[in-house]
Design a protein around this nucleic acid. Sequence first.
DNA 1: CTTATTTCAGATGAACTGAAATGC
DNA 2: CGCATTTCAGTTTATCTGAAATAA
Lengths: 151, 151
Amino acid sequence: MSESMSAGREPMLLYLIKQVELAARSRLDDIVRPGGMTALQYTALTVLERHADMSSAQLARHSFVTAQSMADLIGALEARGLIERYRDRTDRRRLVVALTAEGRALLDRYREEVTALEASMVTGLLPDEVAMLRRALNTCRANLAGKTPVP
Amino acid sequence: MSESMSAGREPMLLYLIKQVELAARSRLDDIVRPGGMTALQYTALTVLERHADMSSAQLARHSFVTAQSMADLIGALEARGLIERYRDRTDRRRLVVALTAEGRALLDRYREEVTALEASMVTGLLPDEVAMLRRALNTCRANLAGKTPVP
DNA sequence: CTTATTTCAGATGAACTGAAATGC
DNA sequence: CGCATTTCAGTTTATCTGAAATAA
């Protein structure tokens, strides 16, 4: 009965994605742990580096999590002095997040190792294939969000 | 200074992978919640369907988690009656996991919806591109594990 | 003796929901 | 008023580490 269906033939894509996420995050945690950060925190810093002047709520939408979850993360980064926040003058509800010098220094400190981790992850794939992987993941992300590619 | 480096140009692959995993898991949770399961539990059942007669420790290695983490998951599935365990006669340390009829029924009950979720996730990609995505993820998984593709 | 499997106990990280305060 | 942002409080899920029992 069910063994004739196609879904059982190959592992779910969701399973593969989860495995890669789990293994990659574990490696990234090892890299940034000496800096007193988690992989998630480091990743958030890289997002802030690419997107200045975002509020916590904007970051939450950008990252597919609730505003409350992002507030926890932002709070931890602020407590560590890696970011600071200031009130937006034109909309005083918003607390705009900015990297501090220390935050930038930590990003720089681990940039090479993180780049090397990503490179080791895609070892055996051609440059075109890596570009294709990136494009496919962006498509998946957009499809799951019901939105256009990436802000 | 750091803005001339390549790492800052595009979002990290790790970030994209995490976003897709988060969004996809959330959708899968919605699908299987009526069955009283989490996405993780459903995924574990699909692994058991494809790999019979595995012990919890083997499953843990297969899934990149500790034996203790897998024991929690297996314990929940057993408590729900979706799997059962029996002692391996030739190695009495091992408790071999087997799907129950109820476990198979739940797999069948959600198979179509889960297949549709994966299909919707890769909407806009050609079949070749989906195959390439799967292959690339397998490569990443193997590279991160320091092992050969998949058991 | 060493190693593998399982189990027990506790800790942590990272997400969630609900509710309230503030400001647009 | 309704909506967005932030914060506070509590909860859940999914991982981890450490330690002990059993068996190969």
